[in-house]
Amino acid sequence: MIVMPYLFFNGRCEEAMNFYSQAIGSPIDMLMRIKDSPEPPPPECAPPGSENLVMHASMHIGKDTVLMASDDPSGQAKGFQGFSLSITVDDEAAAGRLYAALSAGGTPVMPLGKTFWSPCFGMLTDKFGVGWMVTVPGEG
């Protein structure tokens, strides 16, 4: 079994995916707009004026993780609360680069530092309101 995050944005999905692609260093695998769908979605799912919104986008992060996202044409997506995306990197230098890139325009929550479980761990909220935890695995 694999769990993959799927994020819903209010018209900023393409901007967010481009930001994550640059910050993490992973290319976007695919991005499809509502107008490019091979089958038109039901009108209640894509009201007039939503044609250029992202219907689905995805990118691989590392070997096994896929981050998926879309815009929410209904406008129901009101933010990201109650979870964080946790990303593990090999060393403190990589953690520092990733933390700085993801926190650009966002809010540091816990600066990178040593904890009892990790030689380098930090938390942030990015400029889209998504929480991230950056960690280097500890010994043992």
Rank of each mutant, 00 (worst) to 15 (best):
M1I: 12
I2H: 13
V3M: 14
Y6S: 10
L7Q: 04
F8G: 04
G11H: 02
C13S: 05
E14L: 03
E15L: 02
M17A: 07
N18F: 08
G25N: 10
P27D: 09
D29E: 14
L31A: 08
M32H: 12
M32E: 15
R33K: 14
I34S: 03
K35A: 11
K35M: 06
K35L: 06
K35I: 06
D36A: 03
P38D: 08
P40K: 10
P41Y: 14
P41A: 15
P42Q: 12
P43C: 07
P43W: 02
E44Q: 15
A46W: 04
P48Y: 03
G49C: 07
G49F: 03
S50K: 04
L53E: 09
V54F: 02
V54E: 01
V54H: 02
M55T: 10
S58K: 13
S58M: 15
M59S: 01
I61M: 11
G62E: 13
G62S: 13
V66L: 14
M68W: 06
S70D: 07
G75P: 03
G79H: 03
G79K: 02
Q81H: 10
Q81K: 13
F83D: 02
F83H: 03
F83K: 03
S86F: 13
I87H: 08
T88G: 13
D90S: 15
D91W: 09
E92R: 12
E92F: 05
A95R: 03
A95H: 03
A95W: 06
A95T: 06
R97Q: 14
R97H: 06
Y99T: 02
A100I: 05
A100Q: 15
A101N: 09
L102M: 05
L102T: 00
A104I: 04
P108E: 14
V109A: 14
V109C: 10
M110D: 07
P111M: 05
G113P: 07
G113K: 10
K114E: 15
K114G: 13
T115H: 05
F116N: 08
S118I: 09
S118M: 11
P119T: 10
P119V: 14
C120M: 14
G122K: 01
L124N: 02
L124K: 00
D126N: 00
K127M: 06
G129M: 01
G129V: 01
V130C: 02
V130Q: 01
M133F: 08
T135G: 13
P137M: 15
E139H: 13
